[in-house]
């Protein structure tokens, strides 16, 4: 099975206290933020690795995992660490954030998918900077592929179909999709029983979370192929989403500390009037 994983490098939202808006209000000032791979995309990569191996012998890749990003050269660090974790090849599409919106990314990925012909495209359900949650669904439609979004579990069946447990409001909705198909992943995909390839024994349990690259693999990753493509080769779709202003949300201020349960009930009844 060949899997294409789309990843993005994002400003770490766990450092959100340091998010600032430029003085004119027309840009997010990310200068104080650290960069890291979008966590949902990191989980998509882990899911791709689990789908292309027997969980008991993860060093042997059954198939190919290609990782792609659209970003400036600095993001090659992100691609190299994906290669070190187990991906076989990487593609960087040369583009700055200002060249991209969800629709442009979806169209560029469509062209790459048509060239690469993967069986499955995997990506995070959303990036934690823009929080848009749109590229996977748009790409699936452009390709006329079936999709399963917000995946918490993935089972590869003997005929190659994927049984996907989707996290939806009020429960888990299961879909069966036949490749070529697209899956976007939610947090719980990296739980011990999140993903099973058809080679992995159903009783096998992964470690919680994503795998880390051993040192020799980090060295080896430097020799794995990484190609660079200009965005213009993949799409000529124009930008159609324009952010004109940013602002920080109103800060909620701390209220009062109550001394005991009786005072709490009294405040909620008489002051807040919510009981």
């Amino acid at each position: 099975m060949k899997i294409l994983v789309a990843v993005k490098r994002v400003a770490d939202p766990d450092n959100a206290n340091r998010i600032k808006v430029s003085s004119g209000g027309d840009a997010i000032d990310a200068s104080g933020l650290e960069w890291k791979i979008n966590p949902f995309d990191e989980y998509a990569l882990e899911a791709a690795l689990r789908l292309t191996e027997n969980g008991a012998s993860p060093k042997k890749r059954e198939g190919e995992v290609v990782v792609v990003t659209m970003a400036p050269k600095e993001a090659e660090t992100t691609l190299r660490s994906a290669l070190a974790t187990g991906a076989d090849r990487a593609i960087r599409v040369e583009a700055g954030d200002d060249d991209l919106d969800g629709r442009v990314v979806a169209h560029a990925l469509r062209k790459l998918v048509e060239e690469e012909k993967p069986d499955v495209v995997l990506m995070g359900k959303q990036t934690v900077d823009g929080d848009s949650n749109q590229v996977g669904q748009m790409l699936a439609e452009l390709l006329d592929w079936p999709m399963a979004t917000f995946a918490a579990t993935l089972r590869q069946e003997q005929d190659g179909s994927l049984l996907v447990g989707r996290e939806v409001d009020g429960g888990v909705l299961s879909l069966r999709v036949r490749p070529p198909c697209l899956v976007t992943v939610d947090l719980r995909i990296v739980s011990p029983e999140g993903v099973y390839s058809s080679l992995t024994d159903p009783s096998f349990k992964y470690n919680e979370g994503v795998r880390f690259a051993p040192l020799p693999a980090i060295m080896q990753a430097k020799r794995k192929p990484l190609t660079v493509r200009p965005l213009s080769e993949l799409t000529d779709v124009a930008l159609t989403t324009k952010y004109t202003k940013f602002e920080l949300p109103a800060k909620r201020s701390a209220g009062v500390k109550v001394k005991d349960v009786a005072e709490l009930v009294q405040k909620l009844t008489e002051e807040a009037r919510v009981l």
Partner: peptide, 20 residues
């Protein structure tokens, strides 16, 4: 139309226009 969207885990709001 200008759409106000929460971004960065709700730590910022962005105002965007769509031109399609």
């Amino acid at each position: 139309l200008v759409y106000k969207r929460p971004m960065f885990a709700g730590n910022a709001y962005g105002y965007c226009e769509l031109s399609t």
